[in-house]
Design a protein around this nucleic acid. Structure first.
Length: 492
RNA sequence: GCAUAGGUGGCAGAGUGGCUACGCGUCCGCCUGCAGAGCGGAUAUACGCCGGUUCGAAUCCGGCCCUAUGCUCCA
């Protein structure tokens, strides 16, 4: 078996082959930190996290780099707002910390490095200088632009129609450029007020003077362009050519196209062998985005639904299709997660029971687990098909429930095999976190006494009273489940 | 307009030539004091439209319609 990935560069599913055997380098084009992360961002994070985990499962040693863009007009536009900070870097730091908190709450594996644009100015300047030396870039009034016509392969990734219309002059922003599609590598001076106003909250006092952080360079004080930072960080922390460059679909043009052009013009080598673009999350027929103000923040989503349900929602559609956000879709994800979680909990509970040396053998259970593992592997090998992978997980769930339902004495080997499978696949690859059955779960005194009195009322046959207490317990976040033999109580 | 992805049953969403997708929902049954969970069963004429290829098409080919994203803010 081998892994196939849809490469946006060719538009085809290609067999994955790393540059160096057994090791993989991934660069994830991360956030511009000018706002709270929303579910759309989380969708890209979660899918790329699963990709990384799958590569690790396959035995690759993965080096994963995820950047933060902390130099940007939108960040400057939030100066003086709330308590975010009084400088561009302070505002950026505020939102970087928020993003890291969200990633942590979602249980994502940490990147090996989270580089920031502001910490790579020397590398950025070095690349720009080399591009000027090789005539791929030119200086103009203290700014530096990449000369698109100097790079033959321009457009290979996003495949824009490079016809006359593309090359025709647009009335705006041609001033310092030789060609309208040349893009800035270095921008002279601070951010002018007119570049900020469109992002500035209209309830705030407008910014009237040039602002934002600036750095010294051979071309005078200024700021790096948007695309050059990713080239610098990818090459600094990984290498000139990397295995996988991932990001949201909306970055394909111009960001990734320009990144690729300037990097390859500078090194003469391929910038990335595989380009992966995660399709966008939509809400009411348009993409979820900060600028459209139609977003659901990751933090709010997690506090309302929990990290596992959010993940279940996001990976229930493969990364290669766009996904629609709705309340009902999230509720479905909650139910799907609960079904998985309950089966896991029920099984670990069953394993706590005596008779660990049971001689019961359930071939159906064991065979079903084996084939689920194969199906799971096939699914993820096929362009990270997370939805198909979940089908395999739910096959395990079904087999478990059937076994537990129909057997007086359990197949302990089979149950242990199932738990190991769920740990290996659902937990370690898909990133879910299971709560292990704990016979000694502790409750507060209030809850313990409620449980005790409910048990008493039930044994006396006072079901009305018992049901009343059950309702109270549920309001306190305790799930009550009665079976023929006993009742169980656990935290939600 | 151009480019890139999509259009599948009530919802959501896999499936690339013949085989029940998984799930959510709804309904019936079992179980249960009841509820929930679980199990068993049912429900859904599903494949954007029109042609073509084929013994056979959701799947391949052609044309058309629609949606999203991008076309210098964006995961």
């Amino acid at each position: 078996m081998s892994l196939f990935i849809t490469n946006s560069l060719t538009g085809k599913k290609e067999k994955f082959k790393p540059i160096t055997p057994n090791s993989v380098s991934i660069y994830f084009c991360g956030l511009t930190v000018s706002d709270l992360p929303h579910l759309g961002h989380a969708r890209a994070w979660v899918h790329v996290d699963v990709m990384r985990r799958w590569l690790e499962y396959l035995g690759f040693s993965v080096t994963y780099v995820e950047n933060f863009t902390d130099i940007n007009e939108k960040i400057v536009a939030r100066l003086g707002e709330s308590d975010y900070g009084s400088s561009e870097s302070e505002v950026a730091t505020y939102f970087i910390n928020k993003a890291l908190e969200d990633m942590n709450s979602l249980g994502l594996k940490s990147a090996h490095v989270y580089p920031k644009a502001s910490e790579h100015i020397p590398e950025i300047i070095a690349i720009i200088s080399s591009l000027i030396d090789s005539n791929h870039a030119y200086e103009s009034n203290g700014s530096v632009y990449f000369d698109v016509s100097s790079f033959d392969n321009y457009g290979a990734l996003s495949k824009p129609n490079l016809d006359e219309e593309f090359f025709s002059d647009s009335p705006e922003e041609v001033s310092d450029k030789r060609h309208p599609h040349d893009f800035a590598l270095w921008k002279s001076g601070q951010v002018p007020p007119e570049s900020i106003s469109k992002y500035r909250d209209s309830n705030l006092p407008p910014i009237t003077a040039p602002s934002g952080d600036v750095w010294d360079s051979p071309w005078g004080l200024g700021r790096p362009g948007w695309h050059i930072e990713c080239s610098a960080m990818s090459m600094t922390h990984l290498s000139n050519t990397i295995d996988i460059h991932a990001g949201g679909q909306d970055l394909m043009f111009p960001h990734h196209e320009n990144e690729k052009a300037q990097s390859e013009a500078s090194t003469g080598e391929n910038f990335a062998n595989f380009w992966i673009h995660v399709r966008l999350l939509e809400t009411h027929g348009e993409k979820m985005s900060s600028s459209l103000k139609n977003y659901f923040s990751v933090a709010n989503a997690i506090s309302e639904f929990g990290p596992n349900s959010i993940k279940m929602f996001l990976i229930s559609t493969s990364y290669h299709s766009h996904q629609a956000y709705s309340e009902s879709a999230l509720h479905e994800a909650v139910e799907r997660w609960r079904r998985l979680e309950r089966a896991y909990l029920r099984t670990t509970n069953a394993l706590l029971e005596p008779s660990p040396h049971s001689t019961t053998t359930d071939e159906n259970l064991r065979k079903s687990i084996e084939s689920s593992v194969r199906n799971f592997q096939t699914a993820l090998d096929d362009d990270f098909n997370t939805r198909e992978a979940l089908v395999a997980i739910f096959d395990v769930v079904n087999s478990l429930n059937q076994h537990l339902e129909t057997h007086e004495e359990y197949d302990h080997f089979g149950l242990n095999l199932a738990i190991k499978t769920l740990d290996d696949l659902a937990r370690d690859v898909l990133g879910f976190s299971f709560v292990v059955a704990d016979s000694n779960e502790s409750f507060s005194d209030t809850i313990t006494s409620l449980i005790d009195s409910r048990e008493q009322e039930r044994s006396k046959g006072n079901y009305d009273k018992a049901d009343e207490i059950r309702k109270e317990l549920e309001l306190l976040g305790i799930i009550v489940e009665d079976t023929a033999e006993e009742s169980t109580y656990r935290h939600k």
